[in-house]
Write a protein that binds this DNA or RNA. Structure first.
Lengths: 216, 216
DNA sequence: TGAAACAGGGACAGTGCTGTCCCTGTTTGA
DNA sequence: TCAAACAGGGACAGCACTGTCCCTGTTTCA
């Protein structure tokens, strides 16, 4: 189950008690794998049910489950150990809100292949994590304070329009909009003209509703 | 800014260090408000920049920010207090991974209107929270172990197909599929025939790829 | 002053999801 | 055995988003 196999994983289980986080992790995995079948469990008993009745290729675990003390290192390790033992043929990733180097080492001894701080997982990151794992057999991401550009979302924009606005907001000083159109068009594989159109339409919409950020 | 106003909020700031959680909160807010402008900040300095240069109607805070000790009650309260003082005209919601009754009381004294445990926020919940707030001036949701039905996602299904599969998986023993079509069609405002079609198409796709759950 | 960058549009085709309506068969249970 | 429930499709229209190509003006700056 190593190597190039990892992107064709079929059966994935995500064990995480926060609904929104679980939902988006399911989506991220769906996006990172070409064809797959992702299931989510919100607590230990649900997870154990599913582990008993299914064979998973990949199990993603947040050890901070309800009924266990999130401060207790032994509780966290016990959760992971139980799950690893119930799915001996699966790959196991751990996702955590509060990471530590010691915990990663302990998890690794239990057979965990990746250890990911929640605040270091961005949309699209799971692809990189799976790549790391395919190449090196493991992937580790500790918490990270690095600046991400602030988000900005207006309810009336389509995804493409949002994308163009976001890129344009990060435009460096000396760069012309045309250069952004060129660059971005190349990056996402569309005509620079189209990129220009999306930006202009987005801008027009924002102007009409009066909420146009400062960088235009 | 009370009452029916709350759904027409325009400017929203979400302060949360976990990228995925922030992303989905932005989306949830975008969905819950008719027209809005949602911004996200990943840490305190970014948040303070934005609070200085913008006027927000609603600020949503996760007090567990990088640079502060998530175990320290005083750190958490200080974060919230600073933000509340910087946006005196805004409504403030607090979202937290580890909730407690005492913390909610302390937050309330700082002027916080809603206190929400992360594991109690489901997709679509923000609408209810805003309703609660509009009616009662506050909204509180402590952590909750109640069973949510396990998720199931297959990468090749459209949203509607997913929805039908998910409803059908929860079908009670004595209920016929036709009854589900009826009920669901009524609930989401489509023809029962259409519901039937979606389910059948979804089922066919799952059969073709070999991953059909047990309940059919 | 002339060229590039800009704002702000229109026309058009393609695609995927939605939703309605209709069809043929097979299985199941009262 | 007869009707309802089921599996598994086809045809078709509407709609939103995408993407390409083209247009007119105005501003900016070398």
């Amino acid at each position: 189950m190593l190597g190039t196999q990892s992107k064709h994983v079929q059966n994935v289980l995500i064990i995480e008690d926060q609904h929104l986080m679980r939902t988006i992790l399911v989506d991220e995995l769906k996006g990172a794998l070409t064809t797959c079948f992702v299931q989510g469990a919100a607590n230990m008993s649900q997870a154990m049910d599913m582990l008993e009745t299914n064979l998973f290729d990949l199990v993603i675990i947040d050890p901070g489950l309800p009924g266990f003390d999130p401060r207790s290192q032994s509780d966290r390790l016990a959760v992971v150990q139980t799950i690893v033992e119930m799915s001996p043929n699966a790959i196991h990733f751990v996702i955590t809100g509060s990471d530590s180097d010691e915990e990663w080492r302990a998890m690794q001894k239990l057979g965990v292949s990746a250890y990911l701080a929640k605040n270091h997982i961005r949309p699209g990151s799971m692809i990189e994590v799976l790549d790391d794992f395919a190449n090196e057999g493991l992937s580790v991401r500790f918490a990270d304070e690095a600046m991400a550009p602030p988000e900005f979302v207006y309810s009336g924009l389509t995804p493409r329009e949002q994308e163009l606005i976001n890129w344009m907001r990060q435009r460096p000083e000396g760069k012309s909009r045309r250069q952004i159109y060129e660059e971005l068009g190349h990056r996402i594989g569309i005509d620079p003209d189209s990129a220009e159109k999306y930006y202009k339409r987005a801008r027009a919409k924002l102007l009409k509703t009066g909420i146009l950020p400062k960088g235009l």
